[in-house]
């Protein structure tokens, strides 16, 4: 591999963030800075960046603004610009679920989405669910069943589990196993998570 290729991971000629820059091309972003307008496939497309642009996000019921390059992920914006560090960065490639937040009511991987694309949606992070003094039923079930160790995967698991049990209040354990397979824990707290799920849904084995 030559030096040029090395600088472009995956040898595609594009870095992942370059790719996301293109992904940031969009037809319907609320106007905050003046985009370039390009004609693509017979349509006018607004293109942001690479310079910073004002991004407004609705996070946990509050409007938050920051000047961000369009290539900044939703996860990095939450963590770096708004100091909402409950969502963790682990794989940074939409595999592990540690960065799970809700976009409107749906759980999504915040590392797999650009901040600029999250505008106009209602974003809920772990900080928006509850406080340590006033935990939600899912969090209490995790606590009572000791479904955590280091806790690094835990906020993501809580966000995914809460969305899952709200949508599937009568799920079987097998359903839940599959439904939550998009979150990973290295410390191995799955047995505690099973117990928490059982407590939450009154589910039976499989």
């Amino acid at each position: 591999m030559n030096e040029e290729d090395r600088k472009k991971p995956e040898g595609s000629g594009l870095s992942r963030r370059d790719f996301m820059k293109i992904g940031g091309m969009t037809l319907a972003v609320p106007m905050v800075a003046s985009p370039k307008v390009l004609r693509v496939g017979g349509e006018d497309v607004e293109v942001y960046g690479p310079e910073k642009t004002m991004v407004t996000l609705n996070v946990n019921g509050k409007l938050m603004r920051a000047e961000l390059e369009p290539r900044v992920t939703l996860l990095d914006a939450l963590r770096e610009s708004f100091d909402l560090t409950g969502s963790k960065r682990v794989c940074d490639r939409a595999t592990c679920g540690a960065c799970t937040v809700w976009l409107d009511e749906k759980p999504v991987y915040a590392c797999g989405m650009l901040a600029i694309d999250a505008q106009g949606h209602k974003i809920t992070t772990i900080e928006g669910i509850s406080t340590p003094e006033n935990m939600d039923a899912v969090q209490k079930a995790f606590w009572e069943n000791d479904a955590q160790q280091c806790g690094f995967c835990t906020p993501g698991f809580v966000m995914a589990t809460k969305a899952f049990v709200e949508k599937n209040p009568h799920a079987t354990l097998e359903d839940a196993r599959k439904g939550l397979s998009g979150n990973l824990c290295r410390c191995g707290t799955y047995v505690g998570i099973h117990s928490a799920l059982r407590q939450l849904t009154g589910m039976k084995e499989a």
Binding site: T85, G86, S87, S130, P132, W143, G151, F152, P155
Partner: peptide, 21 residues
């Protein structure tokens, strides 16, 4: 006994090195 640091971790308030900003 429920672990002492359960609530801070479960609510995303626990700060790790990665979170120090």
């Amino acid at each position: 006994i429920d672990r002492l640091d359960g609530p801070v971790k479960l609510t995303g308030r626990a700060k790790y090195t990665y979170d120090y900003n």
